[in-house]
Every structure is written in C-alpha cells, then in structure tokens.
Design a protein around this nucleic acid. Sequence first.
DNA 1: CTTTGATTTGACCAACTGGTCAAACTCACG
DNA 2: CGTGAGTTTGACCAGTTGGTCAAATCAAAG
Lengths: 204, 204
Amino acid sequence: MPADRAPTRIQKKNRAAILEAALDVFSSHGFRGSTVDQIAKAAGLSKPNLLYYFPSKEAIFNELMAGLLDTWLDPLRALDPEGEPLEEILAYVQRKLQMSRDFPRESRLYANEIVQGAPRLHDVIAADLNVLVEEKAQLLQGWMDAGRINRAHPKHLLFSIWSLTQHYADFDAQVRTLMGDEDPFDAAPQYLETLYRRMLTPKS
Amino acid sequence: MPADRAPTRIQKKNRAAILEAALDVFSSHGFRGSTVDQIAKAAGLSKPNLLYYFPSKEAIFNELMAGLLDTWLDPLRALDPEGEPLEEILAYVQRKLQMSRDFPRESRLYANEIVQGAPRLHDVIAADLNVLVEEKAQLLQGWMDAGRINRAHPKHLLFSIWSLTQHYADFDAQVRTLMGDEDPFDAAPQYLETLYRRMLTPKS
DNA sequence: CTTTGATTTGACCAACTGGTCAAACTCACG
DNA sequence: CGTGAGTTTGACCAGTTGGTCAAATCAAAG
C-alpha cells in the first residue's frame, strides 16, 4: 500500500481510475455480482496492482459509498426555509431530476444497495439521513400549517420526490425501451413540475 | 430430471418449495449474489436434489420471472376503457400499491433486474410490455383529449404510478427506517389518492 | 414381498474468486 | 549514473460455486 504521506501523481491518477471503474462495475452488477478482476480491467490495471491501492473489494465499495452519500443529499439540504415554499419544492424536484440524468450510475448504485435491504448502509440511513429528513419534514409541515402549500404527509411527499426522480435513472433500461426514440428527459421536467404544482398549489 | 409425464405429488411439492425459496433468495441478493446452495437450503433440499428438479440456477430464475411478469401486468390490463377515467386510474394506483404491500419480493426481484440493465428481460419488455403500454397510453390520451382528466404526458403518467407504488416495496428498508414506528402503508393509499386526484381532476 | 421407477445423497470436479507474495521494474532525485 | 522508494506483475493459494455422477434409498403397484 502507498505510504501515509501525500499521494504521488501516480497514486492520484490510479485511485481515481479505480473508483471511476468501480462505479461503473458496481452500479451495473451490484456488489456481489462484481469481481475485482472486472474493476481492475476497467481501470486498466492488473488485479494485484489494484489491490496495491485498495486493501480489498469492500474497501473500494465503502470509499465509493461514502463519497456518494454526501453529494446525494445536497439537493435536499439546499431546501431553503426562507424561500417561497412551492418554488423551493419545485426547484428541489428539478435538482433531483438533474442528478438522475447526470449521475445515473450513482443513483443505481444506491438503488442496488437499498433494494437488497441496505446491509451496508443501514447505519448511515438511520443516522445522517434520518436527521435530515426529520428536519425537512418539519419544514414542509410548517409550510402546510401556514397554508402556503396544500396538505400532504410530509415524509411521503419526500419519498414521492425521490421515487419519481430516481426512477428515470434506476429504471432507465425500461423507460428508454418504452419511450422509443423520445428522450425521457425531454418531457420529464415538465411532467414533474405540473404534477407537483397541481398537487401543492393552495386553492387560494 | 423428472420424466415428461404428469408431475407426481412429490414433484409438485418440491418444485413449488424451490420456486418459493428462490423468490426469497433472488429478491434479496440478486441473481449473481444468490447461490444454489442457499436456495436449496431454504427449500429444505440438498443441492444435487434441487438440481434434480431444475437443470440449472438460470432455469429456476427464468421460470420465476416468467410467472412473475404475467401477474405483474394484470393491474394495468384491468384499466377499463369503459369506466369513469379518474376512478379507473385511482383504482389502478391502489391495486399497484396493494401489490407492493402483498408481494414485495416480486417487486424487488423485478427491480433488481431492471436496475442492472434488464439483461435477462430486455426481450420481454420490448415485446409484451411495450404493446400493453402503447395501448394504455392511447387510452389515457383519449381521456385527456375528451377533457375527462387533466392533460399530462401519458407514458410519464404510467411511469409515475409504477415508480410511486413500487417504491414502497423496493425501498422498503429505507422507508421503514425513516418512518420509525409508523407503518408506511397506513398513509400511503391516502397520499397517492390525493396526489393523483389533485393532479388529474379537471378544473371543470 | 418384489420390482421398477422416482428420489436423494456423498463425493467429486473444473472454473472462478478474493487476496498474497516475492521478485522485478520504474521513477524521481541527489 | 545510482539508489531507494514507489509501482507492477506472474505465480500462487484457499475458499466458493455451479454442476455431475454413481450409488443408495424410497414409494407404490402388482
């Protein structure tokens, strides 16, 4: 393994290449379905060479996940209590949709984990995510109580946003097959904006 | 392998036990992540005994999938052109939600496949599912043109229904962690009914 | 009880997998 | 250039996996 000093030029390049390759492989075959050899080949390295940079397959996976989770929650963190409620929510939906378009592999990697019961993520979800969700659910509830958006179960509202936006990344294979030539991301932003606008705009 | 005759009592029992066990194992570890031994043990058989009833791991998987897909599409098939549009759609949503509650393993098995690019399902999706979706999208479009429900991209409308309902099965681990004691299925039916009612009810 | 086909199993195999290691090679720097 | 740290690799290993097979056991019909 590389010493505990500042990473060399080669270390930086290779560790980045490995993580990039691992994202590709893990997101399309899951943890168990991926092999170290696959990742090594995708990164342009031999297997022992890869294991010179990471102590194990699981270590690669964990580092990938740690990096992922942070950026994954950013859009929700950015939900601003001071903003105009409906516009804040619509903007959040669009940010999440954007992420599904720009980082589908990250979304699928996460989905893969959760679908299989989140064996490697349970702690993180129970800790960080739970706190954030609790906080934002309160915020949404406040907006509803003030009559600034229609009432709806705040947590289910969050679930629905995640579900609808990530669907375009996670079920990409199905969506694209059924849409034919049309790019799903052409109409999706409009569709979701309409959905949440009609659902949340107060009757006035 | 059992001969090509009518299945014996033991054959019926064991094949059923194997498929039941395989559903359990495949849905929680994916195809690649599951082992024949795991399935055999879960079915109460030895590995060679299991392979006496099915020629290979893939054969078990395929039989499982074939059976699944049919029942999976039934709720959509039942969307009735003669019914009252909004109520038909709301009933469809509730049927799908019901299936997520009653058959979460089936939902996760399907999700697992699609997330990983549907390598073993591409043909079926392109054929059967595509025809059905095309037909029902037309039906929805007709209802919209007649002003009986609000306008929205019909295929995206279907995607959203699948996404929102299956989310409760596929992301069960996450949803339950974040909901604490509260059963997600308590509020979900109400939430989804409200969502689609607000979205689709024409302004009149 | 015997016979015949259905069922079950222990022993085995070849391929694959994650990971190790000593030896070789490369690079930066004095 | 030389040298020592950083890098790469072929050979190897032990455990796992999907699958086979001959022999043993069981069930049911005569």
